[in-house]
Computed example of a mutant assay.
Amino acid sequence: MAEFKVQSVLITGSNRGIGLEFVQQFLKSPNPPEKIFATCRDPESPQSQELKNLSAKNPNVIVIQLDTTDPASVNSSVKEVEKHLNGQKLDLLINNAGVLTHNSLESETSEDMLRVYNINVVGPMLVTQAFYPLLKRAEGPGKAAIVDISALLGSLEDLPKLFDHFPVISYRCSKAALNMLSRCHAEGYKKDGIISIAIHPGWVKTDMGGDQAPLTKEDSVRSMMNIISTLEEKHSGTFVDWKGNIIPW
């Protein structure tokens, strides 16, 4: 099985949680990418200090300001990435930035639904749209990939299993929509040889997942890295968990 080689990767929401762990594990990989574009909404915030420290020690970690919901910010980030790539391709885009609110059917509001949908769906749409020309530069089928960090809670078929414990209406709806976006990318970019896959990272101990989560971010990302390293055309358009098991839509 051929290895999916990553010489350049862009990660959204990379200043904490799963996004930051992706940056750290790419750095520790046997053949680290030449360019790790670590993006976040506010690189100057205290929450971004650990990421900035990594960048100071590792010249291949390039911190870039990116608010995924702001078209101007997205376009600006593309120009910045272009400077560093200098005509080269972008191998991998990881749409990781997301948000969760604990609203039920009774407490959900239009304002919350729109805000969560904007971050979890519109953001990945804008980012992928903007970076598509850089992904398209890859030559041959399966030479570039889009990874959308989705969630089991976005599965329509598996909804009854966890609904009573985790109604999280806006989050569920947004992840179901993100899954459709991922499928659309797989179909629409097939002609360009770009793989698109949605991955459920598990219930992970992060600010979003909480302390009760059974899975560490290290184990989650390590397993997702294994999936990424073996990506092929046949995986495009699929929805899997961090172990690589197929999740029903």
Rank of each mutant, 00 (worst) to 15 (best):
Q65A: 12
D158F: 10
N75A: 04
E50M: 07
E108N: 13
P43F: 10
S29P: 00
G237A: 06
P248R: 05
S174T: 08
E232F: 02
P124A: 14
V121A: 09
G202A: 05
S229Q: 10
T216N: 02
L54G: 01
K175P: 08
P133R: 07
P124S: 13
A151F: 10
G13A: 10
A38D: 05
I18M: 06
E82G: 01
R137I: 10
K57S: 15
L114T: 15
G237S: 05
D164S: 15
D91K: 11
G193P: 02
W249N: 09
P43R: 09
I119V: 15
D158R: 13
S73R: 04
S48R: 04
Y189V: 08
E232N: 12
I146N: 09
V168A: 14
W203M: 14
F166D: 08
L126W: 11
I94D: 00
L54N: 01
G154M: 07
V116A: 04
R172I: 07
P214Q: 02
L181W: 08
S236A: 05
E187I: 15
K52F: 02
A144I: 04
I227M: 03
P167C: 05
D70W: 01
Q25T: 02
F37H: 03
N96Y: 05
S170W: 14
Q24S: 13
P160Q: 12
L156W: 12
P33Y: 10
S155L: 00
N31W: 03
A56T: 01
A198G: 06
M225K: 14
N86R: 10
H102R: 14
E108L: 11
V9R: 05
V122I: 15
S45L: 02
K205R: 15
C173I: 14
I64Q: 04
A2T: 09
I227L: 11
L114S: 14
T206H: 03
T128K: 09
W249E: 04
A177P: 08
A198Y: 01
S170V: 11
E3G: 10
T68K: 01
L85T: 09
N60T: 03
N226H: 15
A130Q: 09
T230D: 02
I195A: 07
K136L: 03
I228E: 00
A2P: 12
E82R: 00
N118P: 14
I195E: 01
V168S: 11
I197H: 02
G244E: 01
A72C: 09
I146Q: 08
L90K: 04
L54I: 05
L105T: 13
N179P: 11
G188V: 03
M1Y: 13
L178V: 07
I195V: 14
L159W: 04
R115K: 13
S77R: 00
V147N: 01
T109A: 04
H200G: 11
F131M: 07
N245L: 06
K175A: 05
F163Q: 11
L20S: 10
V99H: 10
R222K: 15
L105A: 14
L92M: 06
A2F: 07
F166R: 11
S104V: 10
S29V: 04
D67E: 15
V6M: 03
N103T: 11
S45V: 04
R115F: 13
